[in-house]
Design a protein around this nucleic acid. Structure first.
Lengths: 113, 113
DNA sequence: CCAGAACTACGATGGCTGTCAAACTTTGAT
DNA sequence: ATCAAAGTTTGACAGCCATCGTAGTTCTGG
């Protein structure tokens, strides 16, 4: 079954701030989160625009999953990704929103000379 | 003069999200921020309860200052610290609040079994 | 003027982690 | 059956950073 290939996801109650921040401090992972937030639907791993090799990308997806920020599931040979926005927001209200908004602010005109 | 001993502070416009997150990802530095938030007045460096040596603490204060999160000034031989909450909130609205609140939630009962 | 307090500056070190290439597994299409 | 596509896993490596001890600087109090 596909389920056997699905890696374990932490329960929302076991998510720690340290893990979440460790996950969000990396710009590549933050880019994954914002792309996921902007996307109209779930994205497969290969559907992201990332400046690293696929093996490195796999590593980043794992960190995000183990931090409880994304949920992954298989569709055929593709691994799909969803943001666990609501669950994260239950535990750390406003955190994800603030970081994503800040990331957009930094990406857009905000960046200094 | 005292002013000569005051290290440089970044303008609020040059603060980057990467620096802020790099600063907040360390638990010691996050503890400094929350202690500062809870304190009724500015605190001198030695007034914090930190699990590291003074030289390491100095390092953490410098990271926080260079990230634009705190402002430092001398009073006699003591270096005082203030949170630049309002300024940071202008650039990254809600971010500092969310992190501090999340930190408190993690510190209190939030910790899993 | 001197001793102590309060920090800072400077190496040095150890561990963590982001990165990649290569090999492997599973799925889907021909 | 075969082959390509999609990701993972493993192992190796380089760079960063939190930490400390020691030495140095500036202020305060006798």
């Amino acid at each position: 079954m596909d389920a056997d290939r699905i890696p374990p996801h932490p329960d929302v109650r076991t998510i720690t701030l340290q893990q979440v921040l460790d996950a969000l401090v990396d710009p590549v992972r933050r880019s994954i989160v914002t792309q996921l937030r902007d996307a109209p639907a779930d994205l497969r791993c290969g559907g992201f625009d990332l400046p690293v090799s696929t093996s490195t990308a796999t590593h980043h997806f794992r960190v995000l999953r183990e931090a409880g920020l994304i949920r992954q599931y298989y569709v055929g040979a593709s691994r799909m990704n969803t943001l666990r926005s609501d669950e994260v927001d239950e535990v750390f209200p406003g955190l994800l929103d603030a970081v994503v908004a800040a990331d957009r602010a930094s990406s857009r005109g905000g960046a200094p000379v």
